[in-house]
Nucleic acid binder design. Structure first.
Lengths: 217, 217
DNA sequence: ACTGATAGAGACAGGTCTGTCTCATTGTCA
DNA sequence: TGACAATGAGACAGACCTGTCTCTATCAGT
């Protein structure tokens, strides 16, 4: 089985921080960049310049470290969100535009490796895995905040708009991996604005329900 | 480290097929449902009732089997696509509606576990991994077909519309895992139709480029 | 100077993983 | 019947993984 190439073994985290902080930072970096299953405990301790027992004294297990990694990323995520929202607190439409503009930049970075919560959910299909609870909580909160935004725009169907925007965001995250030459991300902001505009216009545009034939290969 | 729970060890694939076919079917099922890294060769041979050497006589390595799995799923995918397109070959707008309606059903199935190409890309971050080429090819072809559809609708900006629809599709795939209670999928078709309608209307709706402040935590 | 908390170093156990090897068995076609 | 290809069964090697254990070193506060 082809393995991911291992990186340098030298310390990459300043040694003046606590062992716990060094471990968490290193794990966050490695788990995000190379995947959780692909990164072993030995790699984390080597890269953070920490003894193995220091890891297991601070985290009960690798799963526990994974949960800590996700909670750390969750914090960063809402920090980013709040920062974007703060620019125009009373203009929800503008906040949506800003959100998708910032998201476009975020997912267009060459180092971008997708949403850690989606990625982790893929790596651990068992929805009872402790990490999955953190992933679900992040997405639930994302949906809640999008609904709040949608309501404040005065959209005709705020729940529907929120879910449409949610789908766009998830699509931006997921498509970051497989379009190396020309990312679809630049179309993101236009899509969000078109969906919002469609909900603010006069004519009621209801989705057409059609009974297409079922196909299950 | 918490492990995925192993299933029954009994044969689940009819023994009258060739060893290669049994292996590929079992691997396809297991890789998709439980993830690639999580499923070992021993599990595959046990579930398919095949000797280990029969596996390695038909596939050079696990990576080779993974590539075969992805090509198999790729075939199924375009089979599904062609089936949906065949209903109204000369009405691109209707084809788009049908596509998203069918997609909604697809991702709403309780057994749905996301897009195998996105999932595999997450499991193997190294873009040089042989499996990644199959994933990229699938997504490139998806984009090509969406562009063809968009052109045939007479959309003002076919490339933009195709990428918007692409983002929606990817979002539907990615969001299948983390919204167990109330999936955003029902909003999918309405979003696609609204994006199409926005491109067929009179007024030019150009995305607004705004220089929001950069935030990199 | 003494104490106690924190951490480094590394051996080790027990399990799992991929991939190889040998040998016996089955089935098919001539 | 004989030959040959495909397959089953299972031991095995070598690597890697998580988690435990022991012993030693450092450093801050009193």
């Amino acid at each position: 089985m082809r393995k991911s190439k291992g990186g340098a073994e030298a310390d990459e985290v300043p040694a003046d921080k606590s062992a716990r902080a060094r471990i968490l930072e290193t794990a966050t970096e490695l788990f995000y960049r190379e995947g959780i299953r692909a990164v072993g405990i030995d790699t984390i301790i080597a890269r953070s310049g920490v003894a193995k027992m220091s890891l297991y004294r601070n985290f009960a297990s690798k799963d526990d470290l994974v949960v800590a990694f996700l909670k750390y990323r969750d914090g960063i995520y809402w920090q980013w969100w709040d920062h974007v929202m703060a620019a125009h607190p009373d203009d929800a439409a503008r906040q949506i535009s800003d959100l998708f503009a910032s998201l476009t930049r975020r997912v267009s970075s060459p180092h971008y490796r997708g949403c850690p919560f989606i990625n982790t959910s893929t790596e651990f299909p068992d929805s009872d895995h402790p990490a999955r609870a953190v992933c679900r909580a992040n997405k639930r909160e994302l949906r809640r905040r999008l609904l709040d935004l949608a309501r404040r725009t005065g959209a005709r169907d705020p729940e529907g708009l929120a879910d449409q925007l949610l789908l766009l965001m998830e699509g931006a995250y997921a498509s970051a991996q497989n379009f190396p030459v020309r990312s679809p991300a630049p179309s993101l902001q236009g899509a969000a604005e078109a969906l919002l505009a469609a909900q603010l216009g006069r004519q009621a545009r209801r989705p057409v329900r059609r009974d297409a034939r079922v196909f299950s290969p």
